[in-house]
């Protein structure tokens, strides 16, 4: 019997020099999209993101740049576990990823962000 029936996983080899997410620097709220032709080149992707940052706040594709983060604290939700009758615990649902950031700001900017 093929083990492929057990799931959709693949072989477990790693790609040399593959990229992992590094330390998170900046978050942007963004409702836009980059099409394959736009993210195919650095220039086209930058042009779209810069233009989206200049849109009105009422535009669906608006990019809201948030302040540069200083410290970051991992606040990932705990996994949800289930227990078998013999006491063995297994993960039933992975906890949601979350973080807490600090940033240099002012009261005026905080008022804008809160609203």
């Amino acid at each position: 019997m093929s083990i492929q029936l057990c799931g959709q996983g693949g072989n477990t080899g790693g790609v040399k020099c593959a990229v992992s997410p590094d330390k998170l620097q900046t978050i942007a709220i963004w409702g836009g999209t980059l099409t394959p032709s736009e993210y195919a080149t650095l220039t086209a992707a930058k042009t779209t993101l810069v233009a989206d940052g200049k849109l009105s706040k009422n535009d669906d594709s608006k990019l809201f740049l948030l302040p540069l983060r200083m410290n970051m604290e991992n606040k990932k939700e705990a996994n949800t576990e289930q227990t078998f009758s013999n006491g063995v615990k297994v993960v039933a649902r992975e906890g949601l990823p979350g973080y807490r950031f600090s940033y240099f700001t002012s009261t005026a900017q905080v008022k804008s962000c809160v609203h």
Binding site: P21, Y103, F104
Partner: peptide, 27 residues
């Protein structure tokens, strides 16, 4: 110094379906 929290709502989207594009500029 201010603080904000962010919670990603879809663990699959955040882990299994994470994709990146390269950039030569700083946000």
């Amino acid at each position: 110094v201010g603080y904000f929290d962010i919670i990603f709502l879809d663990a699959i989207e955040n882990y299994d379906d994470a994709f990146f594009i390269t950039a030569d500029f700083n946000f």
